[in-house]
Design a protein around this nucleic acid. Structure first.
Lengths: 355, 355
DNA sequence: CTGAAAGCGCTAACAG
DNA sequence: CTGTTAGCGCTTTCAG
């Protein structure tokens, strides 16, 4: 009778325990499952990993108990053991630009396919990488993708110090740990210059992003140099901060001063839209009076309202290149030098230059 | 002499160890730092946590060693101990819509401010929540934000089973663990109906998102019901899948069949842009021949090319409401019922309805 | 103020 | 095939 009583007490206790488990916020652990299933904790672990030797019977008991408790294995201890988190951070500042939104989307999908998780970090200023670095390091991210317009030398050195592979998107900072993937900014700009000249333009304007922004600077350089080979030395430049509004204002100001050139190249599509709207408002016709081209080929560039000639760099190609580098670097144990990849571009000619 | 030799060997060994530490890919641990600093591991832990009693001297030694090794504390074990990861997952499918891009940005910034990290999950179909759930559970996320257009009953139950608080953005699925924040879809649509009638429209059209999408259905319902109170029973509907292209095609088809109504309400701005471009191409003038309104107030709605009348729900308000719910639910130990919050909207009248 | 020791939930090596 | 055991790197008692 005594052992029967003990058994009953035991049963009661385990019912209470089960109820408590379910009430508490805590996730159940493999030990909890093991207790309920009447097997060892390692049996549970094995049941939940592919290709381990577990008997049909054990497996069944484990999964039943797991289901009852709502158990799913906890990945965190595994990270501890394996010294890798499978976490990749994406750092971004300019979410209003659809180009970057698309890139983030492509990145996260590609990374998820290889079992990585994406830690999204939004920063305000372009230059805040240094500030968030410790946090990323503490989460033990396996790699970082930076879509920030500027990577300072200090930041690059900081990365080298903590030895996390990083690939910088469209901004070339490079050392042992920092790689970059850029579109052929100067090349794309040269294509625009060629087209403008071919379409008969004789005076030229450029609306750029922020000062010191590599991509913008390169686009201006490529534009200018190619124009020079055609015999044109003057490029009227303005700053648009990559924003529709700023480009609109800059273009409106040009129009007011009657200084609108024959052809206007904007460092991204968003600014080209602003320029187009400002030109139209000023009573100028595109392409009859002014030619306009952008850079990025965001979806809206193909829309009827804009039908904008633009440089296509294809985020898919850039993302694919970045992912390839990332995987190579995450696999490497030996630190080799970071690489710089330039992705080719092409021109999509649309109505804003066609005449 | 013997002890001197031993000391030298020891020193040599520790130099070798240090070099090896730096060469390996492994992150240094607090134990490594402790060894280099000549203190205990717990001293290192204390030095790196706020408000623990550590002497000036110890602290100095620890930080020096940490700097030399490039150490930053590992958060993963802490998650294990505390039973919380400070990770919040954001699940999104429609990144091409700027409204969602802005919402994700606002979310991640707000969450980062309270020490949370954002796990970004991009899914393809709208309905894939069930599939990714186990993964999120295994990462022990503290909460989930879903910006998916559909949350099935099955998915909601699955969430309840694993007991992760979740707030659904613009889609009301609700049970003990699922909350939602929606804009006042029907109310906003009613405002549009009022305006259309006031501007003299007598026939009406609606271009919606996907079939079964709650937000789209509600917008149609609100539109229709308010029109009925004005004495109009007919609404010509079409499907645009929330995409520019589909709305363009649908509108072009209407124009071809000469079935364009006096006023066209689109379930989001992207589709309104498509409708506008299709109408213009068909030679119809907006607002003279047709009135057009959208929903979302994405930045491009204010651009000169569109100048679109639209319903403003302000992602900031929605995000703030969602964040508030999330924090309340993460703090709660007792499971209370999920809440549904409706965020008020207003109308921004622009050129597409002004006459 | 400091070190020793336990333990979070898991994986992997080992013995049975 | 299965259970036992040791530890991943940290936080947190608990003695000293």
């Amino acid at each position: 009778m005594n052992s029967g009583e003990a058994g009953a007490t035991q049963a009661l206790r385990s019912i209470l325990w089960l109820r408590e488990m379910k009430a508490s916020r805590k996730y159940p652990s493999s030990t909890d499952v093991a207790r309920l299933a009447g097997v060892s904790q390692s049996a549970v672990s094995r049941a939940f990993s592919e290709g381990k030797s577990v008997s049909e019977e054990t497996s069944r008991k484990v999964f039943e108990a797991a289901k009852q408790l709502g158990y799913s294995p906890n990945f965190l201890p595994r990270m501890l053991l394996k010294h890798r988190s499978d976490l990749v951070a994406i750092v971004i500042s300019d979410t209003s630009n659809p180009f970057y939104a698309a890139a983030v989307d492509a990145f996260s999908k590609a990374l998820q396919e290889t079992g990585h998780q994406v830690l999204l970090v939004s920063v305000d200023g372009g230059n805040a990488l240094d500030g968030i670095l410790p946090r990323l390091a503490s989460y033990r991210v396996d790699a970082i993708v930076s879509a920030l317009p500027v990577v300072t030398k200090a930041a690059a050195e900081a990365f080298a110090r903590i030895r996390i592979p990083i690939v910088s998107f469209n901004t070339p900072a490079r050392n042992q740990w920092v790689s970059s993937v850029c579109s052929d900014n100067a090349g794309g700009a040269a294509l625009v210059a060629d087209l403008f000249v071919k379409r008969g333009a004789r005076s030229f304007g450029f609306i750029g992003g922020m000062q010191g922004d590599y991509a913008s600077d390169e686009r201006l350089r490529g534009f200018r140099e190619r124009l020079r080979t055609h015999g044109f030395d003057q490029v009227r430049t303005a700053n648009g901060d990559y924003l529709y509004e700023d480009a609109f204002a800059a273009t409106a100001a040009m129009a007011e001063r009657r200084e609108v050139p024959d052809a206007l190249f904007c460092a991204n599509d968003l600014m080209a839209f602003g320029a187009l709207d400002a030109l139209r408002r000023a009573g100028l016709r595109v392409p009859e009076d002014v030619l306009v081209a952008g850079y990025d080929d965001v979806p809206a560039a193909a829309w009827g309202s804009f039908d904008l000639t633009t440089v296509v760099h294809g985020h898919q190609a850039m993302v694919a290149a970045a992912i390839a580098i990332l995987h190579a670097r995450m696999a490497d144990t030996e630190p080799t030098d970071g690489v710089t990849t330039t992705v080719p571009v092409r021109l999509a000619e649309r109505a804003t230059t066609r005449r």
